[in-house]
Design a protein around this nucleic acid. Structure first.
Lengths: 207, 207
DNA sequence: TGCAACTTTGCAGGGGATGCAATGAGTGTG
DNA sequence: CACACTCATTGCATCCCCTGCAAAGTTGCA
């Protein structure tokens, strides 16, 4: 019904390709149904039926119903983290992170305003909004770990936490503002504005 | 079993005092049981039984099971918001908000480290952690509205959102750090440190 | 071909959450 | 005081989320 795993998963075995395919089918079915009736009028049973698997199988791929609605974001966040880990260390940590997040915003969903708005319409339900918040929280946790790794600070200290939280705050407010105000250019530009404003709080270390 | 509504609710009628009492009884029972078995081993049925009400009544007071575990925080947040709304307008909005949040941290739970740690131990369960995140999110939304009111900006713009998100980021990271690092003084001091670091991003308006 | 690893599926069951209607306890008025 | 009114509590039925377990079907590999 949807395009199957296109380019992704080239070097995978048949088993893993199938698994990925059903996961994507479930996510796609979830979004499709939610677009029609609204997210919380969709049951796991519906999604499973639309994806031609048993309801029980749904929970082999997603821990909660809501996860299916934001599966794509989750996957992209993982890619971001992967890229981040491989990025070379620079003196200007804040600048590096801002740049990578900005590039991340130029991908996929956020390019097409139509699509983004449709997606966001789906995510009006409280449960899905909560899930999105958890996504940001998860990203923040990963960022803290990565920042601590780069600055050789303990991850439990205030500095890494504050830096990560500020980054995520800028990211989240930028996206939300862009969604709500139609006149604004791109989420990337908004994010860069927000990040620039916060920049003086995180001057380049010269240790 | 616990101290009933002490000083609070003086000017309330009997009915409202009773309602408040059962709400507090439920919250107290929830915390008590969670301290014994862990939060997610406690069912609504258990809580209701411990508070001597029917399970159905639980949901007349809380929308979800997890709400009962953070009911006190929710109530205190409402007080904070109330005080905030009555605070006179000053030129230094950031400074005002920081001061009020700092004072807020000097209250109740956060004074007694023992108690705070015990409370936090309870809140290890994923579901309760999620609930806490939602609390912060709710606070942020309220802050956005209040900030927009004071600056006469639209609440949908980037500025109010970024300011509120940064404040909450400072608050959350300060509390989390304080919980995890035993050597740190008070959450208030940590929050003020974080806020001071972010301050240059929000200079006093001189419109 | 045959075994190991893994995915799917059905089944049973616990528990969260909601709507509805009945009951009972405060509240205010004549 | 009695009556009507408002509102909290309760039981009941119901839907749905989610999990553990064991059986059956697929894929991977020697």
């Amino acid at each position: 019904m949807q395009s199957l795993a296109d380019a992704e998963g080239m070097a995978l075995g048949l088993r893993e390709r199938k698994k990925l395919a059903t996961r994507q089918a479930l996510a796609a079915a979830a979004l499709h149904l939610a677009a029609e009736r609204g997210a919380d009028a969709v049951t796991v049973e519906d999604i499973a039926a639309a994806a031609d698997v048993s309801p029980r199988t749904f929970f082999n791929h997603f821990a909660t119903k809501e996860e299916a609605f934001v599966a794509d974001d989750l996957d992209r966040a993982k890619e971001l983290l992967e890229r981040l880990r491989q990025e070379p260390l620079e003196a200007d940590l804040w600048g590096t992170l801002v740049r990578m997040l900005a590039e991340h915003l130029d991908e996929a969903v956020y390019l097409d305003r139509r699509q983004a708005l449709a997606l966001h319409a789906i995510r009006t339900s409280p449960a899905v909004l909560t899930q999105q918040f958890l996504q940001y929280a998860g990203l923040e946790v990963d960022l803290v770990a990565e920042i601590a790794r780069r600055t050789h600070e303990p991850a439990s200290g205030l500095q890494p936490r504050l830096l990560a939280a500020s980054l995520v705050a800028a990211l989240r407010t930028a996206v939300d503002t862009w969604i709500e105000l139609s006149e604004d250019p791109t989420p990337r530009r908004l994010f860069e504005t927000a990040a620039a404003q916060l920049a003086p709080a995180f001057p380049t270390k010269k240790s």
